[in-house]
Design a binder for these strands. Structure first.
Lengths: 149, 149
DNA sequence: TTAATTGTTACTCGTATTGTTACATCATTT
DNA sequence: AAATGATGTAACAATACGAGTAACAATTAA
């Protein structure tokens, strides 16, 4: 299975909507920035809409964030675009008659839960506003490095 | 097939080697506990050997841990069996001419690195000894619940 | 020598992700 | 009212990776 960039693309979409709020927000325009295709963008926007992160209206290219960028965390986006949301996965087919096979599943589930919690805590501390600030900072640095285009 | 259980199976192998050290440690015996096949077990053992977590000898079914179980962490095993070791992945194909597409990759890479660090810190605090203790605890609980087999 | 085991490779299969196309539905413009 | 453009949605293909499986050389021990 290929590594997923759904989270990255979803963040991309949200940042695009915020930064280019006075330009075209059509899925084709966003797709050009993501270098993907409009259908993929719309599919991700469905997931973001279901997670109550943005609103859309059929027929109009007017997606809007439902709240301030500082109130949308990386965790919100992550949970919106992943199915189960688990970073690590237990092998649920082990031999129950073996001491290891019969007890490792619950043991690992608990350990993985601790790792998951640590990761999610960090994700919850990174907001969309933080990311957009970073994007602008890097943009200004690039412009400063190349004063004449 | 769905998400990878390489980490789970690798921990399984290490725990099996420790718990059943006085019984057959052939890849077929371990595979029976994992409910997988010997070749998969041997492939994972290659990764664990390269990470200096165990030693093997061709022709003999005598894998041995290179150090005490308390000195082997979940992070050690994770890094042994994953290629790049990254839990989250940046979309490296975005439009560099767009403010978002041109700066989001590095921005997300930094954010993902923080999440990765949080997860790895937690993984480093979970040792193979902890997991084996958990396995034994659960085993005793199951035996107590069913006094007569 | 014979049997068992590891080390290794090649191949198939299942499935998640992404790319692509098509079309119904809705809104806006003419 | 018609035309245009957008979203919502589904279907299918292409791709990639994990896992299953089989096969065989190399090595060890009986």
């Amino acid at each position: 299975m290929r590594y997923s960039h759904k989270l990255s693309d979803a963040v991309h979409i949200l940042a695009y909507i915020d930064i280019y709020h006075d330009q075209s927000l059509a899925s084709t325009a966003i797709a050009a920035s993501v270098e993907s295709n409009p259908a993929l963008v719309r599919r991700l926007m469905v997931a973001l809409r279901r997670a109550d992160l943005l609103t859309t209206q059929q027929g109009t290219a007017q997606p809007r964030l439902t709240r301030a960028t500082k109130d949308i965390t990386l965790l919100d986006v992550y949970q919106a675009v992943t199915d189960d949301g688990n970073l690590l996965h237990v092998d649920d087919k082990t031999n129950p008659l073996c001491i290891v096979g019969g007890n490792i599943q619950e043991t690992l589930r608990e350990a993985y839960q601790q790792v998951q919690h640590a990761a999610e805590t960090q994700m919850a501390q990174i907001t969309l506003a933080d990311l957009i600030t970073q994007i602008w900072t890097r943009q200004r640095q690039r412009e400063a490095a190349k004063p004449t285009e």
